[in-house]
Amino acid sequence: MNRLVIMLSTLLALAAWPGPSTAKADAGGDFRLIRAGGPLQLRADRAYILLRIDTSNESFAADLLRVPSEQEMASYSAAKQEAHAKAGAKAPPLADFAFDYSGRANLYELPAGKWFAQNGKTNTVLAEVPPGDYVFYGQGFNGYLYECMCLGSVGFAASAGKVTDIGTMFVASAAKPSPIPELAGEVDLGPTAAMDNTLWAIALRPARPEDNLPEAIYGTAIAPAQFHAVGTFVEPNVIYVNRLAPIPGVLSYRSGHVIDVATGTEVPDH
């Protein structure tokens, strides 16, 4: 019996086995989570992203991607080519060459556990980031990217000297029904969505005037994010692929194709 318990617990643990650690890219001074208690002084050369995370079901993280500049992409490509050349004749073709880049990072984790403010089951996370264009890239936990929004997501701009409120993130098991209205159509998918790992349905409710704001935010320049639909993209280094739940006026799907609601057109794949 003990052996059975050990085997089962091992299998369960391995179901979420994260794999090997890889060299982390350098977030340097680019990214900082602002925690509760300290005074909030916005820097003119930095942008701020505010996200509420509903932790009623699980306490996960939102993983946000900053769209890299051409210079960043060029630096990455040069480093990858150099590593590929060093790897010699046994290396796979450049496109298939797995490469751990230790240069400037552009994928950041906003974990529910590192909150700036708490209101019941809703944790508000505040991040200081470089100004730029961002994509709601996926959902993660403990520093690992678990699920990408590869089948459709949203993007937004974060301007310098301002707090951009991207609303509230909701999470529920995609296998079972959920009472969260934003997740309708993304849940109750059945047991295929809960085999060795759980597929999580993710929704982002844009900021509303009645949403709770931490007192420390009062008086700062804050504005709701202006979202646009983002087409499909490929990310193999995850457990699962999923899509962000539709957002009225912003994001919808037609036979699996990503639709920009504002224009009614299909968004190209990346």
Binding site: G19, L107, V238, I239
Partner: peptide
């Protein structure tokens, strides 16, 4: 592939 560890660089596009 193995899960990404964050922070990370993703060659968007």
């Amino acid at each position: 592939g193995a899960q990404r560890t964050l922070p990370a660089f993703v060659p968007w596009g």
